[in-house]
């Protein structure tokens, strides 16, 4: 059983994606990444990733999936921040 109902998680993730959608691509992805990384309980993230792995996330916005991949990789930890999505050099 999922930690939280996956439909709920997908809705939440897509809503976040909707907000950052008007930004240029790299910042759009970064905005979602910062949010998922610093506002979501890791178990919610895990459940969301499992859903993406299992289904490919046909109902999930593309840039949200890109952000999810960045959170999972967690290669270059960026300090948490509030405010507009940063323009990051390397990650996108």
């Amino acid at each position: 059983m999922s930690f939280i109902d996956t439909e709920r998680l997908v809705t939440m993730a897509n809503q976040i994606g909707d907000f950052f959608a008007p930004y240029p691509h790299a910042r759009r992805v970064e905005g979602v990444r910062n949010h998922l990384r610093n506002y979501w309980d890791p178990r919610m993230r895990e459940a969301f990733f499992e859903y993406l792995d299992a289904t490919g996330g046909p109902d999930v916005h593309e840039h949200v999936k890109e952000a999810a991949a960045l959170v999972r990789a967690d290669t270059a930890p960026v300090r948490a921040y509030a405010g507009p999505p940063k323009q990051l050099d390397a990650t996108s």
Binding site: M1, F3, I4, D5, Y39, P42, R43, M44
Partner: peptide, 18 residues
């Protein structure tokens, strides 16, 4: 070091049994 659950998510998790 990780964020916890918001109240609505606590309720979501509770109904999911977690």
């Amino acid at each position: 070091s990780e964020p916890g659950l918001r109240l609505p998510n606590m309720f979501d998790a509770a109904t999911a049994g977690t």
